[in-house]
């Protein structure tokens, strides 16, 4: 199987999502100004890249294999129930936003916080765009996709990151690297699995698929 790379143009900014990530329910006038000024400063710093491969899903007892990725995660198994194939992907919005977060975390934590929130919204938007495209592609074949599921969700160990990187050649394909603590650089990056199934799916977003308790960022319906 081959690994493919795609470069996207910027998805539309969702300001209320950004404010949500920044921990704001109602934005004061100054907070709105802060958001606008940060949005101005980060125009042009993003590059939206995804690399992905489609792999056959082999389930043996409790173990799932997808190419060189192997895991015993029960949560993932449940998520991929009924799937025979999966799209494995890694995505990033680039190092530019990290530079801004870095710059301001030493001189203005409020700006750093806002850039952090913008970065979070950007990478989610990129993943949504990619997922929608995958959804459309397989819908044409009469197939459905599961919500994306990432290492760190429920009992799907972040150790799996190493396998993702081995499979997808992320440094070369999209400039994404993994450090000793399994943190990715650029930080605004996501790796995930999307299952492909013949059955229609109940859960619609990745927050619903995740079993992490008490997450402050969980999307409410």
């Amino acid at each position: 199987m081959s690994v493919f790379t795609k470069i996207y143009s910027a998805p539309e900014f969702n300001k209320s999502e950004i404010l949500r990530y920044a921990g704001t329910k109602e934005a004061s006038e100054q907070t709105s100004e802060l958001l606008e000024s940060c949005l101005n400063e980060c125009s042009g710093v993003f590059s939206y890249k995804v690399c992905f491969a489609e792999e056959k899903l082999i389930i043996n007892g409790g173990t799932i294999s997808m190419g060189s990725i192997k895991t015993d995660s029960k949560a993932l198994l449940k998520n991929l129930d009924g799937c025979e194939r999966a799209v494995i992907f890694a995505s990033t919005v680039g190092l530019g936003i990290d530079r801004l977060i870095f710059k301001y975390s030493s001189v203005s934590p409020s700006r750093a916080l806002m850039f952090q929130a913008i970065g979070a919204e950007r990478i989610e938007a990129l993943c949504d765009m990619f997922s929608a495209e995958i959804c459309e592609k397989y819908a044409a074949e009469g197939l459905y996709i599961t919500p994306r599921f990432s290492p760190g969700y429920g009992d799907f160990s972040v150790d799996a990151q190493k396998d993702f990187f081995g499979l997808l050649d992320c440094p070369r394909k999209i400039g994404l690297s993994l450090n000793e603590s399994l943190i990715m650089t650029p930080t605004k990056s996501v790796t995930a699995v999307i299952g492909i199934s013949e059955k229609a799916q109940k859960k619609s977003n990745s927050c619903e698929a995740c079993t992490l308790d008490g997450c402050a960022y969980k999307k409410r319906k």
């Binding site: 921990g23 109602e26 907070t31 802060l34 934590p109 409020s110 916080l113």
Partner: peptide, 14 residues
């Protein structure tokens, strides 16, 4: 008291 949110708190702190 959750009348002010984090970004505003930080701007004030700065």
């Amino acid at each position: 008291e959750k009348r002010i949110y984090l970004p505003q708190l930080l701007m004030s702190a700065e």
